[in-house]
Design a protein around this nucleic acid. Structure first.
Length: 426
RNA sequence: GGAGAGGUGGCCGAGCGGUUGAAGGCAUCUGCCUGCUAAGCAGUUGUAGGGCUUAACCCCUACCGAGGGUUCGAAUCCCUCCCUCUCCGCCA
């Protein structure tokens, strides 16, 4: 959520920044509603002030056993008018709220300008594409022939875009989650949390998934709850409506959760394999920090996510998303794209963003300065560290052998009970 | 799911329909005082919105779990909801 006070005085600047996203967003209706609201407020507040003083006078007169009927009569009218105006203010404020919640964040000045992903910039490339003396297969072929992925039965259980991992497949996914969590907690200083996997709608408004992206979410019928599409939602909202102390910042959490997404609007995309699922596992990184630190923290958080890929020996690149491609709530985003030899393509495996105070303003997450200074909004950040399902895909495709077996990356072996290779059962 | 108790400021805790934004205590910060510490004395300390405004000061409005209602006036009365605690039931 943008700051209405800033918009009031700098609406052209805001419109210009928002236009970089490629959507023509006019702030005029917002400004009009704001002006209307303030006009009404000053009227109704003046009436309330009058009512307060007169009511005290009534109290005084009654105590002295004097007649106050005339004042009471008069105030009946005033109160009625106040009620009317309060109603109008409530309507305006609801509209204002509804409107401002659908306006995306403004991109940071360092974000490349462009309309779509073709304008994204590759910030760096790490490692090299592995070479094979055979034609590398796609992860689904590998997984099914090893008997560790069963898409047919997954379909029976839950339909398209769900998967069933078996045997070493299930083990590998579980190992990856633990591996990631251990590195982030033990080496990167994050505190592990295990949040609810379904949370109330307020949380979704707080991080920006609602009201605009309702169609992407799984709602629990008869409840105010939705299944989490990412741990970002519950974890960022841990501190919703709180005032933190400057000394405790930055606060860094890591969390494993399954993620549930309808994937509306992606029909026909990534229909085969495990790339795009309604449910997948992810380890997330979330930070709350001081505004002046947030861009440093974004670099650190991205590096923390990259470290997982490095330890697993996976080749990847870091992409700076352009103004037309960053998410609704984000001011700046780096995507990590891992190389998948079976598909001969880079695929997103992590997305690391600085939301500045956009989410903090929605979720009312503030902090108080050391010197007892005024409370300010924190900056929030998050990134995948990493998406476990896609990491599994990357391992299958990058560590496949000519005989159809898959070697387990060395860093992961403490987590697979020493298992070094997944081989076809006879 | 059933029965009961309760939700008030940073914390504890009073609270009568009318100078209660809120007693009292603790804590905070600032002075004063004391050889130091402790104690003591005086004062200070919430959030949000709006007006004024460079800013500060100041003024107004709202906030006693949330939302409605009654009333000239609600922390106080009524209704609905949420949450916490205790007991019973059920359960991994």
């Amino acid at each position: 959520m943008l700051d209405i006070k800033l918009i009031r005085d700098n609406s052209e600047e805001f419109e210009k920044k928002l236009s970089l996203r490629g959507e023509g967003i006019s702030l005029k209706p917002l400004k009009e509603l704001d002006a209307k609201r303030r006009t009404l407020l000053s009227e109704v507040e003046a009436l309330k002030a009058e009512r307060n003083t007169v009511s005290q006078e009534v109290g005084r007169l009654k105590k002295e056993k004097k007649d106050a009927d005339e004042l009471v009569d008069k105030m009946q009218g005033v109160s009625a008018r106040i009620k009317e105006l309060d109603g109008e203010v409530a309507v305006i404020e609801a509209e204002l709220e509804k409107h401002i919640l659908t306006i995306p964040n403004t991109p940071h000045e360092s974000v490349p300008v462009g309309a779509d992903e073709s304008a994204n910039e590759v910030a760096r490339v790490i490692g090299e594409k592995p070479s094979f003396d055979f034609s590398p297969k796609e992860h689904l072929d590998i997984g099914e022939s090893l008997g560790i992925v069963d898409m047919e039965r997954a379909g029976k259980l839950a339909g398209a875009r769900f998967s069933l991992l078996k045997d070493e497949g299930a083990l590998l996914e579980r190992a990856l989650i633990n591996f990631m969590l251990d590195i982030h907690t033990r080496e990167h200083g994050y505190t592990e949390v295990l949040p609810p996997f379904m949370v109330k709608s307020d949380c979704f408004v707080g991080t920006g998934q609602l009201p605009k992206f309702e169609d992407d979410q799984f709602k629990i019928e008869g409840w105010d709850h939705y299944l989490v599409p990412t741990a970002e939602v519950p974890v960022t909202n841990i501190h919703r409506e709180e005032v933190l102390r400057e000394e405790e910042l930055p606060i860094c959490y890591t969390a494993y959760t399954p993620c549930f997404r309808k994937e509306a609007g992606s029909y026909g995309k990534d229909t085969k394999g495990l790339i795009r699922q309604h449910q997948f596992n992810k380890v997330e990184l979330v930070k709350f920090c001081r505004p002046e630190d947030s861009y440093d923290e974004l670099e650190k958080l991205t590096a923390n996510a990259e470290e997982i890929l490095k330890r697993l020996g996976l080749h990847y690149r870091v992409v700076t998303l352009c103004t037309g491609d960053i998410g609704f709530s984000s001011a700046k985003t780096y995507d990590l794209e891992v190389w998948l030899p079976g598909q001969s393509a880079y695929r997103e495996i992590s997305s690391c963003s600085n939301f500045e105070d956009f989410q903090a303003r929605r979720a009312k997450i503030r902090y108080k300065g050391k010197g007892g200074g005024k409370t300010r909004f924190v900056h929030t950040l998050n990134g995948s560290g990493l998406a476990a399902g896609r990491t599994l895909i990357a391992i299958l495709e990058n560590y496949q052998n000519a005989d159809g077996s898959v070697t387990i990356p060395e860093a992961l072996r403490p987590y697979t009970g020493g298992l070094e290779k997944i081989e076809k059962k006879s």
